[in-house]
Amino acid sequence: MKQRCASLSLAIAAGLAAMIVTSSGESAYARGRGAGGFSRGGGFERGGFSREGPAAAGSFASRSEGMRGREGGLQSSRQQYAAGAQANRMDYGQHAQASRQQEANALQSSREQTAQGLQNRAQQYRGAYPYAGAAWDAGAGWAAAATGAAIGGAAAAASMGAPASANAAYATGQPCANPEAVPVGPLTFFRCGSGWYRQVYGSAGPTFVAVRPPDL
């Protein structure tokens, strides 16, 4: 009886130990991911997660394949529509040939009507407007600043001798730890060793860009 009790106790103890080990492993994994599940460090160096990307522009056009003129857009649209219709037609293998022909005719007619309608409406609104047909808000400038023109992340109040931001994370984008401000005429340059920088207002906000050394 005593042996049975001992065996049972041993088994229960082993089970509890296994549960504790498993649980602590999960906790360790969770802690490694940060208290909120994500960490600002880890794979994202220098300030954590990036705020940048095409969606930040909030525009009704994207630079990924910007509208290169209204006609280009329309042509592209027609081609996409035609390609889509073609794919759909191929999927309708079980349909009768007559049905496919009718559908193709209808799609062709629809495409022509759609293109004509868009053309008419665009002409109705087109005026003396330099950007008519252009995706002027496609975010080229945003992408430029977002992909490397900026040396710092956002602003560098400390480097300007201005009061530090209330939010430290926002004011960490200095070109180096202690940039030297060098006035050159009306301009202010910043020197970090042999590197020269200027603070500019980019699409992501104030930032630093590397420039050629000024004439001193």
Binding site: A145, T147, G148, Y201, G202, V209, R212
Partner: peptide, 17 residues
């Protein structure tokens, strides 16, 4: 404005300025 700084050209997506 960054765009008015002479000599700075927009970088292609995914590369440095």
């Amino acid at each position: 404005f960054a765009a008015t700084l002479p000599g700075l050209t927009p970088a292609p997506e995914g590369s440095a300025a």
